[in-house]
Simulated scan of single mutants.
Amino acid sequence: MIEDWQHFLLPYQQAVNELKVKLRGMRKQFQDQTQHSPIEFVTGRVKPVDSIKEKMIRRHVQEDRLEQDMQDIAGLRIMCQFVEDIYKVVDLLRQRSDMTILEERDYITNVKPSGYRSYHIVIEYPVQLITGEKRILAEIQVRTLAMNFWATVEHSLNYKYQGEFPEELSARLQRAAEAAFKLDNEMSEIREEIKEAQTLFSKRRSTNSINEDELKE
């Protein structure tokens, strides 16, 4: 019986904090080289205790199997500008030696019936504790901003309807998902123009910053 949830979740919080720093560091490396970063921004969280307990009941997860069977207690989300960026990020994660990929689920190629799109990666990540190394599971979701907007709305509605959406609302959500993906495709068609414009803007901002510093001297 887990009595001290704060103690139980501490390694997960440490993993989320470390992974956010590392993933955000990848973005900064692209920016340092004046390259387009496939990572727009990174968020992370540890699943709240009430949500863990609810999922344990819904998925029939035994408490002594919690660490092995619940993969998203530690969750990271990587947001991208373009669909192509998602697969670039996935390739970058595959090359890392500080985590082990255990499972990949491509809900972009294999869209869920609801219209949900995202790329899920389950990793095993080593956390260094004062008692030694502890390897925990974490889930990384990689998606575009449009996919994230739809998923956030759908998630909010799910609290109200508990997954049993009225038929008309379900149809509307599916149409909205297709509209969001159409937007992603349109942005992909002009991504080279967008990336070039962003690079020029970044260089100009950097030059202006240097000039401002010179004026202060």
Score class of each variant (00 low, 15 high):
residue 36 H to D: 05
residue 36 H to F: 07
residue 36 H to E: 11
residue 36 H to Q: 09
residue 36 H to W: 06
residue 36 H to T: 10
residue 37 S to T: 07
residue 37 S to G: 05
residue 38 P to D: 01
residue 38 P to M: 00
residue 38 P to I: 01
residue 38 P to E: 04
residue 38 P to H: 00
residue 38 P to G: 00
residue 39 I to Y: 05
residue 39 I to R: 05
residue 39 I to D: 03
residue 40 E to N: 12
residue 40 E to H: 13
residue 40 E to I: 15
residue 41 F to Q: 03
residue 41 F to D: 08
residue 41 F to P: 10
residue 42 V to R: 07
residue 42 V to I: 13
residue 42 V to H: 14
residue 42 V to C: 11
residue 42 V to F: 07
residue 42 V to G: 13
residue 43 T to K: 02
residue 43 T to W: 03
residue 44 G to E: 03
residue 44 G to W: 04
residue 44 G to K: 03
residue 44 G to R: 03
residue 45 R to N: 05
residue 45 R to H: 03
residue 45 R to D: 09
residue 45 R to V: 04
residue 46 V to Y: 02
residue 46 V to E: 10
residue 46 V to H: 06
residue 47 K to F: 09
residue 47 K to M: 13
residue 47 K to I: 09
residue 49 V to I: 12
residue 49 V to L: 14
residue 49 V to K: 14
residue 49 V to N: 11
residue 50 D to A: 15
residue 50 D to Q: 15
residue 51 S to Y: 05
residue 51 S to C: 04
residue 51 S to F: 00
residue 52 I to M: 09
residue 52 I to E: 11
residue 52 I to G: 15
residue 52 I to L: 09
residue 53 K to D: 03
residue 53 K to A: 04
residue 53 K to T: 02
residue 53 K to C: 01
residue 53 K to G: 00
residue 54 E to D: 13
residue 54 E to Y: 04
residue 55 K to R: 07
residue 55 K to D: 10
residue 55 K to A: 02
residue 56 M to G: 03
residue 56 M to T: 02
residue 57 I to W: 02
residue 58 R to T: 01
residue 58 R to G: 00
residue 58 R to M: 01
residue 59 R to T: 02
residue 59 R to S: 03
residue 59 R to E: 02
residue 60 H to F: 05
residue 60 H to Q: 15
residue 60 H to L: 09
residue 60 H to V: 14
residue 60 H to Y: 13
residue 60 H to K: 15
residue 61 V to H: 04
residue 61 V to I: 10
residue 61 V to L: 08
residue 61 V to P: 00
residue 61 V to N: 06
residue 61 V to R: 03
residue 62 Q to T: 06
residue 62 Q to R: 10
residue 62 Q to K: 05
residue 62 Q to A: 12
residue 62 Q to E: 07
residue 62 Q to L: 01
residue 63 E to L: 02
residue 64 D to A: 05
residue 64 D to E: 11
residue 64 D to T: 05
residue 65 R to D: 11
residue 66 L to D: 11
residue 66 L to T: 08
residue 66 L to N: 06
residue 66 L to R: 04
residue 66 L to Q: 09
residue 66 L to K: 06
residue 66 L to V: 13
residue 67 E to V: 15
residue 67 E to G: 09
residue 67 E to H: 12
residue 68 Q to H: 14
residue 68 Q to S: 14
residue 68 Q to A: 10
residue 68 Q to F: 14
residue 69 D to M: 11
residue 69 D to L: 10
residue 69 D to G: 07
residue 70 M to T: 12
residue 70 M to H: 08
residue 70 M to P: 09
residue 70 M to Y: 05
residue 71 Q to G: 07
residue 71 Q to D: 13
residue 71 Q to F: 07
residue 71 Q to V: 10
residue 71 Q to T: 13
residue 72 D to A: 02
residue 72 D to S: 12
residue 72 D to I: 07
residue 73 I to D: 13
residue 73 I to K: 14
residue 73 I to W: 14
residue 74 A to D: 03
residue 74 A to Y: 08
residue 74 A to V: 12
residue 74 A to E: 11
residue 75 G to K: 09
residue 75 G to Q: 12
residue 75 G to Y: 08
residue 75 G to N: 14
residue 75 G to D: 15
residue 75 G to C: 08
residue 76 L to P: 02
residue 76 L to F: 04
residue 76 L to D: 15
residue 77 R to E: 00
residue 77 R to P: 00
residue 77 R to W: 00
residue 77 R to D: 00
